[in-house]
Design a protein around this nucleic acid. Sequence first.
RNA 1: GGAGAGAUGUCCGAGUGGUUUAAGGAGCACGCCUGGAAAGUGUGUAUACGCCAACCGCGUAUCGAGGGUUCGAAUCCCUCUCUCUCCGCCA
Length: 431
Amino acid sequence: MLDPRKLRHDPARTAEVLKTRHYSLDIERFESLERSRQEWQRRTESLQAERNRVSRAVGAAKASKGKQHDARALIDSVATLGEQLKAGQAALAEAQAELNQLLSEIPNLPHHSVPMGRDEHDNEEVRRRGTPRQFPFEVRDHVDLGARLGMMDYELAAGLAGSRFVVLQGGLARLHRALAQFMLDLHIHEHGYEETMVPMLVNSRALYGTGQLPKFADDQFTTRDQPPYYLVPTAEVPLTNLAAGRIFEAAELPLRKVAHTQCFRREAGSYGKDTRGMIRQHQFEKVELVHIVQPEQSYATLEALTGHAEAVLQKLELPYRVVALCTGDMGFGAAKTYDLEVWLPSQQRYREISSCSNCEAFQARRMKARWRNPETGKPEPLHTLNGSGVAVGRALVAVMENHQNADGSIRVPEVLAPYMGGCAAIQRPAD
RNA sequence: GGAGAGAUGUCCGAGUGGUUUAAGGAGCACGCCUGGAAAGUGUGUAUACGCCAACCGCGUAUCGAGGGUUCGAAUCCCUCUCUCUCCGCCA
């Protein structure tokens, strides 16, 4: 949610900026809704003020003996007020609902440092780390490697659920678990995050708070309860909403939360993309990092957060690059986003494995997450940030492909040794 | 799933239709008092929206949420949510 006051103040300029995000703001509609809201609000409030005044007078008249007649006259004098008020309130509610609907579907404004651009081709590479390995043999992709190991099976998963699911078994299942545990421990012990366990079913209010609703309802899995539960598409939703409706004192900030959860996505818009393998699944695991901070700290925090995600890839000995997303490629709520892209030798290209965003006050305003600014003494919206630290399934893919051996076995990176019971390589069990 | 109790401000807590325009207490902030502190004492202490250039000020809403009755609702009625206790079931 943009600041409604700022939008009111200069809608034309805001519309210009929103164009770079493929959003066309209907200024005329906005202003007419705003006018109507304002008019009905004034009208109802003055009717309410009158009602309150008369009602108090009725009470006073009834309290003093001998003025019962005055009370009767007062009551008669507001005979039609109730209906006017009801009509006014209904009109006001309608105007507010339409205005909210409009406001809730406007994406965030990009930070001035965000490169202008249409789509992912206009993203800017910020840095590269690690060198893609030269293989003296033909590399296999993770699907091939997994099948040869007998530990990754898409047909079994299809039998259980459908397409875009996987069954991992034996060493690969353990490697997958080890990756998640390693990431959690790294962020908890070395980066200062608080370990958090959150619900993976949430209500619509939580999804509204982080911006998935109302616009992206089709991307979410829901239950058939009434009202429905939503399966979280990312732990960003429950973690960020921990601050919803609260007013923090400056001393309580910043909040740094990490959670490891399943994530569920219908991926309605992605059919035909990445249909092979574990890159794009309906269910996947992710270790998520969330910061709730004072506004002036949020951009320094974005750099730190990105660094925490990078540390995962460095320790797993994976080559990657950091990319600043352009205006046209950023997510709905983000003011600035860095993607971490890991090298996949089978595809000879870098693929997204983490996305770190500063949402500034966009989510905080939707969920009313505030702090008391000591300088003003007033509650003001916080800034929220989130980043994957990192996607576990994609990390498994990256480890398999980058650390594969000629015989199809997988070298286990050293940092995972404590989580793998000393197992240094995943190989096909002897028949 | 069944039965019961409950939800009031930062916290505790009073409040069964009209000076509640939410009592009282605690906490917190700032004064006074004090050599300093404690005690005492005074004042202040929610959020949102609107009017105003802004401060001040004024108006409106909010007593778990939504709806209803009424000139008027924290209070009466209906629906829902959540919490607690007991029972059942269960990993």
